[in-house]
């Protein structure tokens, strides 16, 4: 009963959030200077041509009228037509979404693996030079933003020691027809490991660039909560039972120490998704972020709206998943 109510409240707040985002984006991109029609017209177009096109896209109406018309379409699943690409926005955006999702999740996995391993090592070697080494590397990783890491990686593994692909999502020479846009997922299911390896070779550097700052945050925070947990009585009690340091850290301390980190990872993961916009551009990766930049350059208003709404939806979903995980991992919240 309460669960159902919580879900309903959650859905309602999500809807309100998305509506707010839609209003803000809709108004802002129409108020800032720059005319989408002007971008489309060949030199020497007459005023009559401009007016005709403006009417065709509905830009002659007031912003409020335009919003009501657009919202009416959205309610029926129609997000309008892209001005620059001349295709339905919904198709374009949903076609690109899997590429960005795969990149973000791959980056998240790398960040959790690296950050988690560093945190555990730092705890195992706490108060020694080992922990200092973890702190120093985390500090360095954090003080450089993700796009600069991208450039560094391109220089290292694309130019000096070219082991990874520096642009695109997949090698064009590969002979495979995908039925979905989840290339990684699909290639694994179809057991095309050659294709999967090629995808990883493309995705690894942008994912790593996105992952490095997040890995540093995870390493720092998780190590801190682990170290605090290691002083607690139940950890001491486990030691007296004959358990060694590794067991004590991973089995006794970790399940409790992970909770604050989980909340932070949720928030940081949305930043990571935001970071894909620049990283995808840097690595010419065919995802939503890359499309967003093109849409802004071309002042493709319907496409910008669609992409922003989708990003907002992603963010709220990530927060929802984190909240649910939190309840699963913390027994105290289960019956509340």
């Amino acid at each position: 009963m309460t669960l159902l109510r919580n879900i309903l409240i959650r859905l309602l707040t999500t809807a309100i959030t998305l509506f707010g985002v839609a209003v803000i984006v809709f108004v802002v991109i129409r108020v800032v200077p720059g005319n989408p029609i002007a971008m489309m017209l060949p030199p020497g177009a007459t005023d009559a041509d401009i007016e005709r096109l403006q009417a065709q896209y509905g830009f002659d109406k007031s912003i409020f009228e335009q919003f009501v018309i657009w919202l009416g379409g959205v309610m029926q699943g129609d997000f309008g037509t892209s001005i620059s690409l001349r295709q339905p926005v919904a198709d374009l955006v949903l076609g690109r979404l899997p590429a960005t999702l795969e990149l973000s999740i791959f980056a998240l996995v790398i960040a959790v693996l690296i950050g988690g391993a560093l945190a555990l090592l730092g705890t195992l070697y706490r108060d020694t030079k080992g922990e200092a080494a973890v702190d120093v590397s985390a500090g360095m990783a954090l003080s450089v933003p993700d796009f600069l890491w991208g450039l560094v990686l391109i220089l290292l593994f694309g130019v000096l020691w070219p082991v990874f692909h520096i642009s695109g999502r997949i090698s064009p020479s590969l002979n495979i027809d995908f039925t979905t846009n989840f290339y990684m997922f699909e290639s694994l299911i179809r057991l095309r490991f050659d294709v999967w390896a090629d995808l990883v070779a493309h995705m690894f550097m942008p994912a790593l660039a996105l992952a490095i700052p997040l890995a540093a945050i995870i390493a720092q925070l998780l190590k801190q909560s682990l170290k605090e947990t290691m002083h607690l009585d139940y950890v001491t009690l486990a030691r007296t039972k004959g358990y060694g340091e590794n067991h004590v850290i991973t089995r006794e301390a970790l399940p409790n120490a992970i909770l604050p980190t989980l909340t932070l990872v949720g928030v940081q993961f949305t930043f990571l998704i935001g970071g894909t916009v620049i990283i995808e551009r840097l690595f010419s990766y065919e995802g939503l972020g890359n499309m967003a930049i093109d849409a802004v350059i071309n002042r493709d208003l319907p496409l910008i709206q669609g992409i922003v709404i989708l990003f907002a939806l992603l963010f709220t979903l990530v927060n929802l998943v984190v909240d649910m995980l939190y309840v699963v991992l913390n027994p105290k919240l289960r019956h509340a």
Partner: peptide, 14 residues
């Protein structure tokens, strides 16, 4: 074996 001082913190909450 140890019988600890504070029963509120000596059992693993998870």
């Amino acid at each position: 074996a140890l019988i600890p001082q504070d029963p509120l913190t000596a059992l693993n909450p998870s």
